[in-house]
Design a protein around this nucleic acid. Structure first.
Lengths: 200, 200
DNA sequence: CGGCGTTTTGAGAGAGCTCAACATCGGTGG
DNA sequence: CCACCGATGTTGAGCTCTCTCAAAACGCCG
């Protein structure tokens, strides 16, 4: 979702690039909110760590996406951002972005719309997390993430990563995928999954 | 959370009130998005219905809160809004609100901040839903919703409603509360719950 | 080749869901 | 005033499903 186009040139020029190795943190919960982050290359996940030390994946952002929008209005970050792969991130300083919103009404409005879309996305994720059955949850994900043809899903990373994003253990995900394939619901082909019985 | 103060007078005067009986729908998924809704009296829950016909509670809004903010930027609603109690709702027509944002920068900015807060709230809910253990989930809720003294939680509605909001069956919630009380963790008193072993 | 992370399969246990029965409370109407 | 009724609250028993711990095959890279 390339949703950075609305950033005025003044903000763009104030940006700072940062490279991250896989596993490295872009920021941690409690860090002072520096600004808006755009993923240039690689993937970065937003997570919270629960009391038992497990990661809860809130979002996985790829190239073109921005993260930490909500932090523009907060003093500190309220979750961790960890690079899932080697990554490059462009950070637009908070002050510059907010100043741009003062000047450029269109930018402010586009940003608001982005937030609104994010709210909907988060609601979809709540819906997903409410599904107890691993099978249904995986199906839900596959249908939601089917490509243009509505029948092919390209996995962005490892199955283990996907398990985290789905809120399942990796074992449960492997078993579920195997069961779906045995049942003739899907066909796996490397990093791609084809939905066989799903009408477009 | 009284977060409507930023609405300009012009928008306020365009508002339409609507009364709902408990169980009645304010809007359904797919309905054309009419506008921003402020709860005047009672409680309204935002839900999605899963394939099995079960309700998934996305949010429960009380007096002073607004709902359907994200729908200002969408053609149709993407969840159902159902009155949990008899309720009165004030609807601010979409066009009027958007026009106000064009004119009044402060209003637009306050609205954006509201959305940002909502994003954080939704993330907290994802975190909650990720807790498998009923006991931990209930604890999480109680601590988060403790009143000013940090030790008393006033239940807004029935336990059955709460179970839905927590994503538990009502039986599981009853059992968990009973177990917590047996363990001396809480003390129930009608619609109030006191946290006994929680340091403030 | 050796090592490390991912993928896969196995077995066991715990926890919430489901179905079921019953108690309790509030309102309604005879 | 009391019987009735529906919704909420409560407890019991069994079952299913995922988690957890374990172990092994596989793939990639130095």
């Amino acid at each position: 979702m390339p949703d950075r186009k609305w950033l005025p040139a003044a903000v763009r020029s104030a940006a700072v690039d940062r490279t991250l190795k896989a596993g490295e943190a872009l920021f941690r919960v409690g860090d002072k909110a520096a600004g808006l982050c755009e993923i240039v290359r690689g993937r970065v996940r937003l997570v919270r760590v629960d009391r038992a030390g497990r990661e809860i994946v809130l979002h996985v952002a790829g190239p073109g996406e921005t993260i930490a929008e909500a932090s523009l209005f907060a003093v500190a970050y309220h979750c961790d951002a960890i690079a899932s792969t080697d990554a490059m991130v462009r950070v637009y300083p908070k002050a510059a972005v907010l100043a741009a919103f003062e000047q450029d009404r269109g930018a402010a409005q586009a940003f608001t719309a982005t937030l609104a879309r994010q709210v909907m996305g988060l609601r979809a994720r709540i819906e997903q997390r409410n599904i107890r059955s691993a099978r249904e949850r995986v199906n839900h994900y596959l249908v939601l993430n089917a490509g243009a043809d509505g029948r092919t899903v390209k996995l962005p990373g490892s199955l283990k990563d996907l398990a985290g994003e789905l809120g399942l253990t990796h074992e449960a995900l492997y078993r579920t995928l195997a069961a779906l394939e045995r049942a003739g619901e899907i066909r796996r082909d490397g990093r791609k999954i084809r939905l066989l019985r799903h009408r477009v």
